[in-house]
Write a protein that binds this DNA or RNA. Structure first.
Length: 681
RNA sequence: GCGAGAGUGGCGGAACUGGCAGACGCGCUGGUCUUAGAAGCCAGUGGGUGACCGUGGGGGUUCAAGUCCCCCCUCUCGCACCA
């Protein structure tokens, strides 16, 4: 990546967590707080390593359409995060110095409405703008104050917009007007060019700013409904309209004007069309010990030299002390730091920062395809065979972290020729979290439910069964101690019914086709079908388990009068076998035990999944709902396959129907085959 | 503000293509067993108890709506000074 320019080092303002004592990527700052420890993140100017994820912004966005197996929510979050916007860069000339002040705008149609300019406090041209101006001192004090504020406060929406005039003017290349250049605390250096043109008539922020500092407002987009007058405007007009006060572009609809003015800007070489991204490059330097060393060596003679392949991987040193004093121990380790330059052989120093651990998780899935490969990160053929991941499961909290980084890495690795695929994960399921009394259970927040206690008291099978039963996987799971009891009780019920009849069925062969028509045999096959479908359909284990519960209830009912006939014994035997197999994914230890005690010599884990007999689930009789005017009035039990005509006749003959139609002739009769008859009167 | 998702008994949740709303479990009630309890087992359990009313609210389509359409409310999550 280094050789391709996708890994680079630069000095910039970065997110610094004072509690973790490390730099964080933008994705790892949530609402101005550290994603791990919730400390307020500070702004700090440091030289750090970055991955150029922005080089892939376009593809990361456009190939979102290929992710058909991902939840909409995650796709939206990624789209928002990447944040594409299309616009124009325009060069304004600074009066006096002749320097170019480049701004980015998505609204070239409002270029004639510029009444002032705003730049970020960090803007590199600031010093030259204020040089020799009487405002210089005040501007510096203002900038110092703004830069001291932490990131959370600065990007807070409620933060009051503040600014100060630099004393400099920039010339609008379209109309030659002078616009005063201000510094604004709301202008972000990281986005666009760090400088903006301000059009108070058509931008709410600029409108407020102009109002506060008494800057002029000029309408250049006229509301076609009612004429706008600058002096009486209560807010910026941001709707579409017709151009005014815009020289030769007057009277154009603003949509067309956007294109015409952009064309003009490009023709006159005073700017160009461009795209901007909210996405920033991924800062990967971490001042931590635990992380992969950045394989770079600094040599006084040769400069920055990547560690050659033959010397990879760079391993973390063992002779370090963890002082907890807030500096990476690698900095202190001379055995690690001091090395020789791979290029000239002279004395050199290793980079002592490590990589963000998200780097590792960005390609582990490729490594998993050939974990024993020792000459390369992974084997291309193996990766080609196994990838992409058919079904990926993870928490929603990784929507713009791991899931975005992994997509980026996959594309980079593809472009390096190591792998032939565009996307790592075909289908994504974002599972919910465990909630107990409103508190979330997570790796970083701790266990709200004590697993040791659950395991000791009930065992892992009960815990798993409850977790899967209580809610579908994509939803948060409300933990309930009583619910766990219920799962425990269910396993006992299964155990009890099997043991109660084990002597009756132990040496009996399971029932086959000859048992079709038996109600438990039918239930068994219905359950096989249902459980199989529920697992395959979005992993709805909760309904699969409820089907197993129904089947067990049926077994209790079936055996209530004793098990005496051969038919009952064979059917019960097949029911027990099927039940054990079906429950095995949810309660594997339990199922294994039961399977062995029913005389099966092999492990249940190696048994094939049962298949339902389609003939066995056909019912001989069906219950038909009889409605009068759409309301259920009666039920009929009819032989399966009864014709619509016969069903209609049976319904009309029903005494309840006669009662509710009061002898009126039916206007219309709707028959849904095998389900329902609705008599409309 | 923008975007996504959700709203169903006392609770967790079912109802896949419009066709018995509330499967299954929890809880609760009663019975059985017991000296008594616990556990187990059995039965009942949306509200009124009249023929009615019930899936956040209001309209609509349809023989039929939790499900489809329109409007509104509430909640959760994400984004949000991005020029």
């Amino acid at each position: 990546m280094y050789e391709r320019g996708l890994a680079y080092k630069k000095l910039s303002y970065v997110n610094w967590c004072p509690s973790c004592n490390t730099v964080l990527a933008n994705e790892q700052v949530e609402g101005g707080l550290c994603w791990r420890c919730s400390s307020v993140v500070q702004h700090k100017e440091l030289e750090q390593w970055f991955f150029k994820i922005t080089a892939y912004a376009d593809e990361l966005l456009s190939s979102i359409d290929k992710l058909t197996g991902w939840p909409e929510r995650v796709l939206t979050m990624q789209k928002n995060w990447i944040g594409k916007s299309v616009g124009v860069e325009v060069d304004f000339t600074v009066e006096g110095t002749g320097e170019k002040l480049t701004i980015f705008t998505t609204r070239p149609d409002t270029l004639f409405g510029v009444t002032f300019m705003s730049i970020a406090p960090e803007h590199p041209m600031l010093e030259s703008l204020i040089k020799g101006k009487k405002e210089a001192g005040d501007v510096r004090a203002f900038v110092q104050r703004v830069l001291r504020e932490d990131k959370a406060a600065r990007t807070d929406e409620k933060q009051e917009k503040e600014g100060i005039f630099t004393g400099a003017y920039a010339i609008n290349p379209l109309n030659g007007e002078k616009a005063p250049v201000w510094v604004g605390n709301f202008v972000l250096m990281e986005y666009g060019t760090g400088a903006i043109m301000s059009v108070p008539a058509h931008d709410q922020r600029d409108f407020e700013f102009a109002g506060k500092y008494g800057l002029p407002i000029r309408v250049v987009i006229q509301d076609p409904e009612k004429g706008l007058v600058a002096d009486s405007m209560q807010q910026a007009y941001v709707e579409d309209g017709i151009l005014a006060n815009s020289g030769t572009f007057n009277d154009l609809p603003n949509g067309a004007a956007k294109e015409k003015i952009a064309d003009y800007v490009e023709e006159k070489k005073i700017g160009k069309r461009t795209k901007n991204w909210r996405l920033r490059d991924w800062g990967i330097s971490r001042q931590r010990y635990w992380g992969t060393p950045i394989p770079i060596i600094y040599c006084d003679a040769c400069g920055t030299v990547p560690v050659p392949d033959s010397q990879l991987p760079v391993r973390l040193p063992m002779d370090v002390e963890f002082t907890g004093k807030g500096q990476s121990p690698l900095k202190e380790s001379t055995s690690f730091r001091e090395t020789t330059c791979p290029s000239c052989g002279g004395a050199a120093r290793r980079e002592t920062d490590t990589m963000d651990t998200f780097v590792d998780s960005s390609w582990y899935f490729l490594r998993y395809c050939s974990p024993k490969e020792d000459r390369a990160p992974f084997d291309k053929k193996a990766a080609g065979y196994w990838m992409s991941v058919d079904q990926y499961i993870g928490g929603i909290e990784h929507a713009v972290l791991h899931l975005l980084y992994a997509r980026f890495f996959t594309k980079v690795i593809r472009d390096l020729g190591l792998f032939d695929g565009d996307e790592p994960f075909q289908n994504l399921l974002t599972q919910g979290m465990v909630i107990k009394d409103g508190a979330k259970m997570s790796k970083s927040k701790g266990n709200v439910v004590d697993p040791d206690f659950i395991l000791t008291k009930y065992g892992a099978d009960t815990a798993r069964l409850f977790s899967l039963f209580a809610a579908p996987p994509e939803r948060d799971l409300e933990w309930s101690d009583q619910g766990v009891d219920g799962a425990y009780r269910f396993l006992h019920r299964v155990w009890a019914i099997v043991y109660r009849h084990s002597r009756d069925v132990l040496d009996v062969k399971p029932a086959g086709a000859e048992a079709r028509g038996d109600r438990l045999y039918r239930k068994t096959h219905l359950t096989i079908k249902k459980v199989t479908e529920d697992i395959e359909r979005e992993f709805h284990f909760n309904t699969a388990i409820s089907a197993l519960m129904e089947m067990v209830n049926e077994m209790y009912d079936y055996t209530a009068g004793g098990v005496s006939t051969d038919r009952q014994r064979t059917v019960l035997r097949s029911a027990i076998d099927a039940l054990t197999l079906l429950i095995s994914p949810f309660a594997p230890h339990f199922a294994e035990e039961l399977w062995a005690s029913m005389g099966h010599p092999a492990h249940i884990a190696n048994e094939p999944w049962p298949r339902h007999d389609p003939e066995a689930i056909i019912a001989s009789e069906v219950t038909i709902i009889v409605q009068v005017n759409g309301k259920v009035r009666s039920k009929l039990t009819l032989p399966a396959g009864t014709s619509d005509k016969d069903a209609e006749a049976a319904a009309l003959a029903d005494p309840k129907v006669k009662e509710f139609t009061r002898g009126n002739p039916p206007k219309k009769v709707i028959v849904v085959q095998g389900k329902l008859v609705n008599v409309v009167v």
